[in-house]
Write a protein that binds this DNA or RNA. Structure first.
Length: 240
DNA sequence: AACACGGGCAACCGCACCTAC
DNA sequence: TGTAGGTGCGGTTGCCCGTGT
C-alpha cells in the first residue's frame, strides 16, 4: 500500500492565503522547481501537501502564466487539439503558451463543451450529432444561434466542421480517450490515427490503404535521425 | 430582500508513469 | 528484475458569485 504523499493531519486545505503564496514563490525563486515533497518544510514550514504546492505553482504562481479570457484563435486551437488528442489537457496546454492544463480543462468543461453541443457537435468525439449530420448546413439553424453577431461564430464552426474529416477525429473506440496511459503511448496511438498531421493542424487525409504493419514500418523509419527533415516527422515532433 | 439555482473556477484525489536503487 | 518514492495527469468536488424568481 502506497504511503500518502503527506500527513493530512498536518496540512492545510482549501484556498491559499497570500502568506502561503509568498512563501512558495520565495522558495522557488531561490531554489528552483522540483523536490516537491521536501518543499513544504523547506519553504518556511508551509503546511501544505507537496502536490498542493506543485499545483499552486504550476497553475497560478508561475510568472509566465497568461490570465484572463481565451482569444478566439486559442479557442480554435483547443477545439482542434481536443479533436486530435481527446482529454489530454497537458498536451493541449503545451501548444498554448501561458495556459495551464487545469485552465484549459476548466474552460473546455464550462464553455467550449456547451458551445459544441449548441452547434450540434458531440464534444466527446467531435462528430456532428445524428439529427444534424444528414444536413450539415442545418447547424446554422441551431436554436441557440440566431441573430447577427452569431453569424461569424457560426461560419467559423461550419468551417471547422468542414475541415474535420472523419479520419481527423479521435476514433469512437477512444484510442486516446481518457485512460491512464502515458502521453507517449497516446502519441503512438495518434500517430496511427493521424499519420499525416500538418504543423498548422489542418489535416490531410491518411491513405486508407495504409495497413497497421505499413504504419509500423513508417514509424520505425521516422525514428531514424536522417528522416527528421521531412514534413511528417516535423508534425510528429510537434507532439513530443 | 431573500432564496434557489447554475456556472465558473480553484483545489483535491487517486491512479499511472518514471526513475533510482 | 522488482520495488518504492517522486511526479504528472485527468477526473471530480466544493465553494463562491452572479442571475433569476
Amino acid at each position: 500500500m502506497r504511503k500518502p504523499c503527506c500527513d493530512k493531519r498536518d496540512t492545510n486545505k482549501g484556498a491559499w492565503s497570500k502568506q502561503e503564496d509568498e512563501k512558495l514563490i520565495d522558495y522557488i525563486r531561490n531554489h528552483g522547481e522540483g523536490s516537491w515533497r521536501s518543499l513544504p518544510k523547506a519553504a518556511g514550514g508551509l503546511l501544505r501537501c507537496a502536490k498542493s504546492c506543485r499545483l499552486r505553482w504550476i497553475n497560478y504562481l508561475q510568472p509566465n502564466i497568461k490570465r484572463g479570457n481565451f482569444a478566439e484563435d486559442e479557442e480554435d486551437l483547443i477545439v482542434k487539439l481536443h479533436a486530435l488528442l481527446g482529454n489530454r489537457w497537458s498536451l493541449i496546454a503545451g501548444r498554448l503558451p501561458g495556459r495551464t492544463d487545469n485552465e484549459i480543462k476548466n474552460y473546455w468543461n464550462s464553455h467550449l463543451r456547451r458551445k459544441l453541443i449548441n452547434m450540434g457537435i458531440d464534444p466527446n468525439n467531435h462528430h456532428v450529432s445524428q439529427s444534424l449530420s444528414l444536413h450539415r448546413p442545418q447547424i446554422s439553424g441551431s436554436a441557440t444561434l440566431s441573430g447577427g453577431p452569431v453569424n461569424h461564430e457560426r461560419k467559423k464552426w461550419q468551417q471547422y466542421l468542414i475541415s474535420m474529416t472523419d479520419n481527423d477525429r479521435v476514433s469512437d473506440t477512444g484510442s486516446c480517450l481518457p485512460s491512464k496511459k502515458g502521453a507517449a503511448s497516446c502519441l503512438e496511438d495518434n500517430a496511427y490515427v493521424l499519420p499525416d498531421l500538418n504543423l498548422d493542424l489542418t489535416m490531410s487525409i491518411p491513405s486508407p490503404s495504409t495497413t497497421f504493419a505499413e504504419w509500423k514500418q513508417e514509424s520505425a523509419e521516422l525514428e531514424a535521425p536522417s528522416e527528421l527533415g521531412n514534413a511528417t516527422n516535423q508534425t510528429l515532433l510537434l507532439f513530443r
